Structure formats: C-alpha cells, structure tokens
Simulated assay, not measured.
Amino acid sequence: MICRDRVVVVTGAGRGLGRAHALEFARQGARVVVNDLGVSRDGAPEPGGGPAAEVVREIEALGGRAVASGHDVADERGARELIATALEEFGRLDALVNNAGFLRDRMLVNLGLDDWEAVLRVHLTGHFLPLRAAGAHWRAEAKAGRAVDARIVNTSSGAGLLGSVGQGNYAAAKAGIVGLTLVAAAELAPYGVTVNAIAPAARTRMTEEVFAATMAPPEPGAFDAMAPENVSPLVVWLGSADSRGVTGRVFEADGGRLCLMDGFRHGPAIDKGARWDPAAVGPAVRDLIARAPDPEPVYGAR
C-alpha cells in the first residue's frame, strides 16, 4: 500500500499500460482519476467507447475509489478540467501519469502532415498541457505555504531514445517528451515536484501486431515478459512518496528488467582555441568518433 490515500491521475488509462497503471495504483491504496477518450489505435472515434468507466468498475470491485474522465488531454480546457476533476472529487492531487497516445506509422516520405501533427498533438501536447495544469496547481500550493510532495511520470519510448524506422512522428514526439521531462524536473523541483519518464516495452494495442509477428506467445503458466502489468510497479513507485529525490531520470521497463537510461552527455572533445578551417574539421570529427562508443542501432534498421 505504498500509495495509500494518494490521488493519482492516469491518462490513456482505459486499456493497455494505462489500465495496468490505474489498477496497480488502486491496489496500492491510491484514489485514481481514470482518463481515456475511448478511441481506436490510430486515434479515430470508437463506437461504444467507455473504457475508462470499465476500469473504474474494476477498481471499485477491488475495494478502491476511482472516477472516470473523458477529457481530451491535448486540449487546453480539457487538461485543466482533468486536473480539476481530481481536486473536486478527491480534494487533492499527488501524482500525474501521462500515458495517452496512439500510432499512425508511415515511412517519412509517405508521412502526411495530418498524421505528423495528430501524433505530436496527442503525445507531446497531451503531455505538456496536463503537466502544465498540474504544475500550476502545485506551485500555487507551495506558494501558499502548503507542503507539496508530488510526482509526474511521463511516457517516452525506445523509439524516442534510439529512433524507430517507420515511426518518425512517434519517435519525434517521444524524444520531445524526454526534453520536456528534463526541463519540468528542473523548473518544478523548488515546489516539491519530481518529474521522471519511462520508456516501456509491452504488448498493447499499439504494439500487438509487432509482437505477434516477432514473438511466440508465452506458454500457459509461464512469465509473460510483455504483459503491460510488468511496467506498472515502476510507475507506481515513481508516483509514491518513497521516490522523493528521484527526478529528471528516464527508465526503461520491460518484463522483469529495469534500466536507468544514460542519455546525451558530453563525450570526447577537441578545442583548437581558434576558428576551424573546414578542411581540418573532417579529421577532427573522425578522431572524435573513433574515441566515442558506437551509437545503439535504430529500431528496425538493417
């Protein structure tokens, strides 16, 4: 019960990773705002909808407390009202898990502007707006002299960290989330807020086709390394009070594996102390590359 009495907002919580996070937060004692628009894998409206309400029923069956939210996290008003829902329903907000997203995969030369903008909107803007709304609330609390011990967990991807063929829009959005995480961690630290990101690998609607083509299903009773529930313990811990002091970090999580990512940092350098001649840049760059580790390969590259 490491999140007993904490109030958590989870976006994209109707299915997959978000659903797993919401249920695990509830098992650990949190009250949960379950946010989901109820759309298809590519973000199109889905007949029937209602996955958020179903997750709320699951949480209530566990003896927990939850409320459903259909707010659009990539809309300014929707993001504000999402955060207001937590405050109105439960009287406080302790953690925000940004998870909502969808895919519209294309090779770059075939990637239309609509598909580019739609993916950046839901992933990157859909992280920024709830983060901004929650951050503004916690800043106001801190300035009013009330203690804040809050958490934000963002969802990046291996595609954002290393690149992924056929996913230029998704990779760009997920890389942007890492940059947003680093800035938010620095800016919100004075108000008692930590901000971290995860890069999960799991079987969800967004990835089921890939895993079906490349991995055999687990044997009955065997550990399912690609179950989304495997990622949730890290997310729940990052949303708990116990994670105080851990901020500005990016973690990979898949199966039973946790990895602290070692992102961009200064590597080999040459300082000539004067302007370079273009002809001399080539040998210098080749020397730098020779002294640096090889980059990890882009997903899907041959």
Rank of each mutant, 00 (worst) to 15 (best):
Q28N: 09
W116C: 05
G64A: 08
T204C: 06
A225W: 10
G166V: 04
E76Y: 07
V153G: 08
A30Q: 02
P200W: 08
K143A: 12
V33E: 00
S156Y: 01
E46L: 14
K272C: 11
Y191G: 08
D149M: 04
A118S: 15
P220C: 08
R265V: 11
G168F: 01
M206E: 05
L162V: 13
G245M: 13
P47W: 08
A279H: 11
V73I: 14
V32N: 02
D149V: 03
M215P: 01
A140G: 13
T194G: 14
L162S: 12
T85C: 09
A142Y: 09
M1C: 09
E58H: 00
A68D: 00
E60H: 06
F211W: 13
G192W: 00
V210I: 13
A22K: 01
R92W: 11
A84Y: 05
V33S: 02
W116K: 06
T214Y: 08
A280M: 11
G168S: 15
P217F: 10
A142G: 15
D224I: 05
V109Y: 11
R244P: 09
A20D: 03
G29Y: 04
V178S: 08
T214P: 04
L103S: 15
R139I: 10
G126M: 06
A199Y: 05
R57L: 12
L238S: 03
L180W: 04
L113Q: 10
A136G: 09
I289M: 14
D271H: 15
R291K: 15
R57N: 10
A84S: 13
P51W: 03
D42C: 09
E208G: 02
P218Y: 10
G78A: 14
K272V: 14
S69G: 06
D115L: 06
P297Q: 13
V122W: 00
R65G: 07
R31Y: 05
L188Y: 08
A253C: 12
R244H: 15
I152S: 00
G176P: 04
V178P: 02
